[in-house]
Design a binder for these strands. Structure first.
Lengths: 333, 333
DNA sequence: TCTATTGGTTGGAGCGCTCTAATGCTGTAG
DNA sequence: CTACAGCATTAGAGCGCTCCAACCAATAGA
């Protein structure tokens, strides 16, 4: 249960520790004979370099820290995939920590990640206050995904929520809908842009916006629908703030004896795996999640290796995914 | 962008580096005056200890490595929650890496985690060959979750899949069902125990098992149902290998004009968040996921701190969660 | 023949920390 | 007044590695 060190390998191969170091770092200035001997000794001993000692000595790091605010959300998994892809091909490793959507726990995760002195940090939809982020940004490069920031030392990658909402409204209007309500995400991340995009798109079509206060959960979506039905203001189409909300809305509509999409059309947002289930088959707005991750990793590496200092702001285009919850209006009146 | 060191703090507080070290480790043998001075200096400089240098010097680690085979699966998120909870209260940090369900990538993740020389490793449903695991186990303590192993240096935490299947069958039989098919998970993890439990439970009730080959996806579940309908062997109840499969089964049943649960009852397995959605409201088998994580972390810490060497095998009891996809038979003859 | 040059190799310092042993400093007993 | 605890504090070595300067052939140039 004790790991061999570089010294052990050097001894066994009959060379100096420095030479082993060169071999481990693939230096070209090592003779083939010695290289082979070192690799053989390393293999026999089951040696692999000690990343921490290495980064301590070299005062550099090949590690990118990733803070995932909510591991339960598959959205982030795809972003991590994108980060991982880029990091790996550039010779970097990633370590992940999670904040569990709690500022306190997230702060702890941030500290834990920083204690490894990574080359940089990618924060996926963090909930800690902006001051905590800008403070961390004094010590190392930081990229924010799905959260905007005006701090000039911080890069950001976001989707264009306004455009996403516009895509949804354009789709519904082109189907013939004129009364379209938005179930709003309240304080949630990105709820603002989506709401603004909805209002702007409605007005652009000469229609009256109808914003219903709701949240990013299926029960909230259902509740919003019930209140619309009770008040007799149910429109012919719904744009939900996200997919969970949309699924809740659908189930409340069905409970009320209405058919989706014959009576009411519903559009979600995020294109989660839930939306793709055939049982749900939700028309929704897709965000290029893996691309988020790739761009975030690239932005970080630009700061780390190329010494870029001006902030980068990526705003990616979402796209519409049409499935089976939207159709021309008709059933209702 | 340069982090202060212990030396800097010592200088500013007018004490030695060793004293700062003692303060940082909450040693009781420091006078209150000095402690306050050190903490003040550290605060002013924005100092926090360098975890790698610390673990290098102390030859110990307060880090637990966690390999998550699939970040997309929320199942693991809850296990991580459990690990995190125990680790934190015992003063350990966790770092996560992901294998993306690919043996090659997983092996890389394993190496990356090991290069940080963590105190131990928890592998969540790994797909690497057993030899890779036992080789790693020579270097540090390892706990396997949702994967069994006979390696004596490795601890395991699993759910009792046979018992879970039995719970489901007992429930369906008590509702009056006698023709119950199992949509099998094939090669998937834990598919074996679930299938065996199904067969055993059916036979215990004097019923004839009907195992239908399927997979852990919703499309596979739908396909299996269509084949049952075509062959005219559709039973009155279905036990799916997992929740996704069950949701696919339900949608295929509804497509065929059958009502769930009036005509056919369906039980899933895993109690994912999907099952809890009101639109789905699936009767399913719950695994104590957070408990998996807690037990895994405890097992690891026992090896790390208490020097335990005999392997531990946890087999946890699943439980039945009744929702709205099961009812007495009736609709169908 | 002597000096450069080159490519391979090595010793030693040092990264930021912990740990051990030694130090200085009270205060109390002999 | 010395002796000796007992406590707070510190110097210094060392963790596993990288990096630099030095070194050592062996070859090339003068």
């Amino acid at each position: 249960m004790v790991r061999p060190t570089m010294e052990d390998v050097a001894l066994r191969a009959g060379v100096s520790r420095a030479l082993v170091s060169l071999v481990m770092r693939n230096s070209p200035k090592v003779s083939d004979a010695r290289r082979a001997a070192v690799l053989k000794a390393a293999e026999e001993l089951g040696y692999s370099p000690h990343a921490m000692a290495r980064s301590l000595a070299s005062r550099t790091s090949t590690v990118l820290g990733v803070m995932v605010s909510d591991l339960h959300n598959a959205f982030f998994a795809e972003v991590v995939d994108g980060i991982d892809e880029v990091a790996r091909e550039q010779g970097f490793d990633i370590i992940i920590n999670t904040g569990g959507r709690s500022p306190a726990r997230e702060r702890r995760a941030l500290e834990s990640l920083q204690s490894f002195r990574p080359a940089g940090l990618i924060l996926l939809s963090p909930v800690v206050p902006a001051t905590a982020i800008s403070k961390a940004a004094e010590q190392l490069p930081i990229v924010l995904v799905a959260r905007s920031s005006r701090v000039s030392t911080v890069d950001t990658v976001n989707d264009d929520g306004e455009q996403g909402a516009r895509l949804a409204i354009d789709h519904l209007v082109s189907l013939g809908h004129r009364r379209i309500a938005h179930l709003d995400g309240g304080e949630g991340t990105q709820a603002g842009p989506r709401r603004r995009g909805y209002v702007a798109a409605m007005e652009a079509h000469g229609l009256t916006p109808q914003v219903v206060s709701s949240e990013y959960t299926d029960t909230a979506g259902a509740r919003a629908i019930r209140s619309l039905i009770e008040s007799g203001t149910l429109p012919t189409a719904i744009l939900s703030c996200n997919d969970f909300n949309a699924v809740g809305a659908i189930s409340a509509l069905e409970d009320a004896g209405l058919r989706v999409p014959a009576d009411v059309s519903v559009v979600g947002y995020d294109n989660t795996s839930l939306a793709a289930l055939r049982h749900v088959s939700l028309t929704t707005i897709d965000q290029p999640r893996a691309e988020f991750g790739r761009l975030a990793a690239l932005a970080l590496l630009q700061r780390v290796r190329d010494g870029r200092t001006e902030p980068v702001r990526h705003l990616l285009n979402p796209s519409l995914v049409v499935r089976n919850t939207t159709a021309p209006p008709g059933g209702l009146r």
